[in-house]
């Protein structure tokens, strides 16, 4: 049936064009805040891969549907039924196997990325103890025995956050959008989070888990500074 082939050909062209357009859009306009940690760059790559896959399926399905609505709409006065096609085994197998392969691939890539962002680094880590409470953050640097209400980190040094919330407190969540990663602080247990900040700047730490009245304002400043400035800050805290 050449007519059927013609429709498929048009569809294929439209889908390719639309996928390319969507990919261009995603690459041209970054939808994410700037990345400020080595974890962020791994995660952003994963985002790009997924946007590409999603872009393709989005284009495929939406265009097929719109095309059908236009090209195959019932003409006035036509009372007949469509062709009685019940199915097509090859096609159905393909649309089970291809997505299956894609999601397994995504799972593997995603698992590796998770390994990478949570692996312990070879260099020594800076340990920071974080206590979340209704509604404030408390940071402790055990290496120097100092505490602070704001977070400062030296650039390019891996950090291990140890997070807790007190027994009579509630769940909070540690998030700096530019670092990309998030971890809840849970009463009664200690959770860990690894971040290697790699861009100097002033960021905001936000509490991402609903924790009551002050949730919206449970923020703290998170500054990534050069090593020397960081040491100076630690010294000033010691006094």
């Amino acid at each position: 049936m050449p007519k059927a082939r013609k429709h498929l050909l048009i569809l294929a062209v439209l889908v390719l064009v639309a996928t390319a357009a969507l990919a261009y859009l995603f690459l041209q306009f970054s939808f994410l805040p700037i990345p400020a940690s080595s974890q962020a760059s791994t995660i952003d790559k994963l985002f790009s891969a997924m946007f590409a896959i999603a872009g393709f399926f989005l284009a495929l399905c939406l265009i097929a549907m719109l095309y059908a609505a236009i090209a195959f709409r019932r003409r006035r006065g036509d009372a007949s039924d469509g062709p009685p096609i019940q199915g097509n085994v090859a096609l159905e197998t393909a649309w089970i196997l291809i997505p299956l392969a894609i999601v397994i691939g995504l799972g593997v890539v995603g698992g590796l990325a998770l390994e990478k962002i949570s692996a312990a680094p070879e260099e020594s880590e800076l340990e920071v103890k974080v206590t979340a409470l209704q509604w404030a953050w408390l940071f402790e640097y055990p290496e120097w025995g100092v505490r602070s209400g704001e977070l400062r980190l030296p650039v390019d040094r891996p950090v291990l956050f140890r997070l807790t919330s007190r027994d009579n407190d509630v769940v909070h969540s540690f998030w700096v959008p530019e670092f990309r990663v998030k971890q809840d602080a849970v009463p009664g247990r200690e959770t860990a989070l690894r971040v290697t900040p790699n861009a100097v700047g002033d960021y905001q730490l936000l509490c991402a888990e609903l924790c009551g009245l002050g949730h919206a304002y449970m923020r703290a400043s998170a500054r990534v500074v050069p090593e020397a400035d960081f040491m100076a800050w630690i010294e000033s805290l010691k006094q």
Partner: peptide
């Protein structure tokens, strides 16, 4: 899908 993948969910969750 990005929510299902742990690494990206850590950014997107909540």
């Amino acid at each position: 899908i990005p929510l299902a993948i742990v690494a990206t969910d850590l950014d997107l969750t909540d």
